[in-house]
Design a binder for these strands. Structure first.
Lengths: 340, 340
DNA sequence: CACGGCGTGTATAACGTTGTAAAACTTGAG
DNA sequence: CTCAAGTTTTACAACGTTATACACGCCGTG
């Protein structure tokens, strides 16, 4: 049988509210009383009933984190950092996965889970800007990943265009001239578009041709999709000297195909990924990658959501998180050069 | 402002309970009344307040899934299958990560989150059998991963000893004679011990020596730990012709070290992992691995927890999930043979 | 010595829902 | 037309918590 405030109150010979005051660290309680009540609490092993507390306060103490897929280790690491940040504010994280489908993302953003959660952190892939524009929900929403247009929600993202440009510039500086992009999306997912744009801008800025024939569209974001895209490019007779992939799993899938075709990385083709997942550090050829500051992103996301819970919610902001390009074996040296 | 049963009742001109009856599909409601109330519900956009419902019914509709780490894709896939299974029963999944530390696992099992959840699925690593023996909680608990002793909780696991034996037998059948084990744990984690036992039993059964000098203990379960263990074995002057790793990330970490040392996989050293994560299918050398039926494990776990919620809870059972050994390049061919 | 003021503790009323029991209707038989 | 038996609807009391408003001491001050 669960013990309630009432039981503790009876045991200590005080009123229910006094016990509540002790539990909530209300200030006007004499030390003597506090200790007496605390003794009863300990004796009975009282634990507050959250459902009741939430009913009364109108808060649940739960925030939801909705991600496209858990399989990508990037999101796993992000999740860990969100959980850590949330628990520092006595919040609990409810995990949802959308599969990256627009329908699911819409459902989640429209408050599918709204009745249980105080706030939502959503990392959309296919969701359109207009989908969010007429969102009718009082549950605070924070978006992860850059969006193109302004929306009345906090965005937390790294600068995708700039990061993509950095990656491509790195390839160009190595002497690469034909840089393929793997991971454009047929459905025009916004984050993918931004990275394609960075790719295009940087090539153009360097006086090179942004050859759209070297952009491979895909349907998913996993290893297999990267492999498929790489095969598609090679089968079309193209022979780029560098590949920039939408994310690390796709880059790794692409490298596998290059390996199967007898092409050497980086001598024949240099490869850069995105997200810097742990896996990229342990392949036969370690992977150069854009490394977002995941810990910061998780922390900022949680803080942004919680800040919106109070009455004095700040204006929606676009928050830029840090990133850096981590160079590894997959871009070591100039074309044709043997690995050191 | 949120709309409650009271508002709907006022709008429809009926009592609160009648609205509640309609919402809950109570049988004794005339079709006319049902429609009239439904119209008001739709008009006002009523959504039930779960906190209140839970307070009243004593259930929260949330189960927790506590995992050692999210970074391992095995757990990510498992999580996805648990979420899917739970949502089929209108349940929501709260995710927790223990970091695989005994303290955290203890905390979780003792009901750290108990006030919010109806049931708990725990995948322990370091937790001892005796830690669970005096668990004092009314929240149903289901354990993932094999435990050695009998406990009054449902276990869902594949047969670790048998699976390990299958893996080692496969290596022996390939003509390997010196099989190392990577991933024993200094802290005597039970799952790791079972796999070591399988390794030992199979070698002995084949008339080979189970050389304890080829068992490498580690502190973690990631790529880096596998790499460290592999280095340790090689640096000690040993030169096994096969490696069986506790899990895929460790196997991949080990393969990276073999690559760095100029040892060929599988010609010089064959490698078998455990868990069959997607990553193992896209390395330069694809990884042979023990593949547990993750979908079944997730489904069984959810069903077991929910079955314990009712009054007629079944007796605790040990449920065996299926697995199979998936052979890939890392064990292709006999020692010294060139890859086909 | 009375009085305001402050610090401490207490009844009571919510929060929104569902279970119980009883009231208000139907229906059909006598 | 009455009454019993059944069906539908309602009033009310929980569930366990916190906010509000108030009562009670105690203190220092006029």
């Amino acid at each position: 049988m669960r013990v309630s405030l009432k039981d503790v109150a009876a045991h200590a010979g005080v009123s229910i509210k006094t016990v509540s005051n002790v539990v909530n660290n209300y200030q006007h309680v004499t030390p003597a009383m506090r200790e007496r009540v605390q003794r009863s609490i300990d004796a009975l092993g009282y634990q507050p009933n959250l459902a009741a507390r939430h009913l009364r306060k109108g808060r649940t103490g739960i925030i939801a984190l909705a991600l496209p897929e858990l399989g990508n280790p990037y999101f796993a690491e992000l999740t860990a950092s969100v959980i850590d940040a949330a628990s520092q504010h006595d919040y609990i994280v409810l995990l949802d996965h959308t599969g990256g489908s627009r329908d699911q993302e819409l459902l989640v953003s429209q408050g599918f889970r709204a009745r249980v959660i105080d706030g939502l952190i959503l990392s959309p892939i296919e969701l359109r800007t207009e989908d969010l524009r007429d969102r009718d929900q009082d549950v605070p929403l924070v978006l992860l990943g850059e969006r193109d247009y302004d929306l009345p929600y906090d965005h937390i993202a790294i600068d995708n265009v700039a990061a993509a440009r950095d990656a491509v510039r790195h390839l160009i500086e190595l002497g690469r001239r034909e840089v393929a992009f793997i991971g454009a999306r047929r459905d025009r997912s916004e984050p993918a578009q931004l990275r394609v744009r960075g790719w295009r801008e940087e090539l153009t800025a360097a006086g090179l041709r942004a050859d759209e024939g070297l952009v491979a569209a895909v349907d998913g974001w996993g290893h297999a999709d990267g492999a498929r895209a790489m095969r598609h490019i090679l089968d079309s007779g193209r022979r780029p000297d560098a590949v920039f992939a939408y994310n690390d799993p796709m880059a790794i899938g692409a490298m596998r195909v290059l390996h199967e075709r007898g092409l050497r990385v980086p001598e024949d083709i240099a490869v850069v990924g995105f997200d810097d997942v742990i896996e990229g550090r342990f392949g036969a050829v370690t992977l150069t990658s854009v490394s977002p500051d995941k810990a910061a992103i998780g922390r900022l996301a949680v803080e942004s959501v919680l800040a919106r819970l109070g009455d004095n919610a700040p204006a929606p902001r676009r928050i830029w998180a840090d990133y850096q390009l981590v160079e590894r074996e997959s871009t070591l040296g100039r074309p044709g050069a043997a690995t050191p």
